[in-house]
Amino acid sequence: MIAQPYHDRDAVGKPAPLANNAPAPLDGPLIRQGGHAPALSELARNYMRTLLDGDRRAASALVLEAADRGMPVSQVYLDVLQPVQREVGRLWEANIISVTMEHFCTATTQFVMAQLFPSIVTNNKNGLSMVGACVGDDLHVLGINMVCDFFEMKSWETHHIGYYKSDETLFKTLYERNADILCLSVTMFHNLSQAKALIQEVTERFPKTKVLAGGLAFLNDPKLAQRIGAHGWARDALGAVELATSLFRSAQHG
């Protein structure tokens, strides 16, 4: 479900290798063309080059101006921010860029999303509510942020809490928001057991709340989501919204 900054997928959605065995030389081309990664759009390539040049303002301006010219925000997310963040993650994992650069790119993309967010807020809500969170102390909140934004675009009441201090904080939020869906992002494999316990308690305490799982931890084996008790799994933000919508549509028709 979660758009992963560290991994890529090919045209049919197959996850890319976790590591790149042949890192590009520091002075060579940083953006991979072809191979396992889908080709980046021109805007995405420019955004990434500007990011890697360290020019946050110019990078943000590129994307925001495209949105101003009429590019739908969903397209900005899916065609620019998501693939660029995946490529950034791949470069970091391949030791081509530093963790500092990876954090810089992530923070800039979060800044761009924050600037775009006002234009996607919907007033006509569909009566459904969702909460998005990362399990444990995971710092990789950009993906779940993107998921929440896609739900917002589809007229859901959304609440992005990123990571949370304690399970009780999350339960309080689920109660206050009367959540229909909890989207849980798990990036680190060592958080899976914590996610399983959390899902079990959520389903006991909030029977009406459906839990959707996503994130890097499930990309190679989506059945893991089912094994830890989630009601569903989605590869990315768009898939998560579609799955959630279908869950409630079938509930209404059932």
Binding site: F111, A114, F117, P118, L139, N145, C148, H159, H160, G162
Partner: peptide, 20 residues
């Protein structure tokens, strides 16, 4: 760096919530 990202993430979430 992690602390920086935590603060950044919290600010991002807070800004989102503020806008909503």
């Amino acid at each position: 760096l992690d602390e920086f990202m935590k603060i950044n993430n919290e600010l991002v979430a807070a800004q989102r919530e503020l806008h909503l």
